[in-house]
Computed example of a mutant assay.
Amino acid sequence: MSENLWRSSVRNLEPYIPGEAAKEAEEQSKLNEIIRLATNENPLGPSPKAVEAMQKAVLEAHYYPDLTCLELRNKLGSLHGIDPENYVVANGADNIINLVIASYVNSGDEVVYCTPTFSEYNKNTLLVGGIPVEVPTTKDHKFDLEAILDAINERTKLVIICNPNNPTGTIVDGEELRKFFKRLPKHVIAVLDEAYGEFITLDHYLTGVEYIKEGFPVITIRTFSKLYGLAGMRVGYAMANEELIRPLQMVREPFACNRVAHAGAVAALDDVEYKEKVLLGNKLEMEKMITVFRSLGYKVEETHTNFLFIDMKQDTSKLAKDLFSKGLIIRPCSAWGYPTYARISIGTAKQNDKLIKALEEVSSQTPHHI
Rank of each mutant, 00 (worst) to 15 (best):
C257W: 01
A349M: 07
N106R: 15
A53Y: 03
L59M: 13
L323H: 12
A93M: 09
L70N: 08
I219P: 09
P164M: 11
A93D: 08
G169Y: 06
S29I: 02
Y211L: 14
A265Q: 01
I34S: 09
K30I: 00
G327R: 05
K326F: 09
E71K: 15
T168I: 13
V278I: 15
M54G: 10
K75T: 01
N106W: 07
V88Q: 00
E3Q: 12
G208Q: 07
A151L: 01
A320N: 11
K326R: 15
R222G: 03
H368C: 09
A261H: 04
C257Y: 00
Y104L: 08
L127H: 05
F143T: 09
E33N: 08
M289D: 00
I160P: 12
T348S: 13
L279H: 04
A267H: 04
D315P: 03
K182Q: 14
R222W: 06
T168H: 12
A90K: 08
E243P: 05
Y341H: 15
G327T: 08
G45L: 05
L308S: 07
R252Q: 03
E52T: 02
A335V: 11
G19V: 10
R73H: 00
M312R: 08
V105S: 01
V128L: 03
D173K: 12
D150E: 10
Y63C: 06
Y338D: 09
Y121V: 11
I290F: 03
P48Y: 04
P247L: 10
Y196E: 05
S295W: 03
F118P: 00
K226M: 13
L328M: 08
Q351K: 03
K275D: 05
D203H: 12
N12I: 12
V105M: 05
V218A: 12
N32T: 09
P254N: 08
K226A: 07
Q314E: 13
H62C: 06
V272N: 14
T305N: 06
C69W: 02
I310F: 06
N153K: 02
S107W: 04
M250D: 10
L184W: 07
I161R: 07
W6R: 10
N12H: 08
D109K: 06
E253W: 01
N258Q: 05
T207D: 15
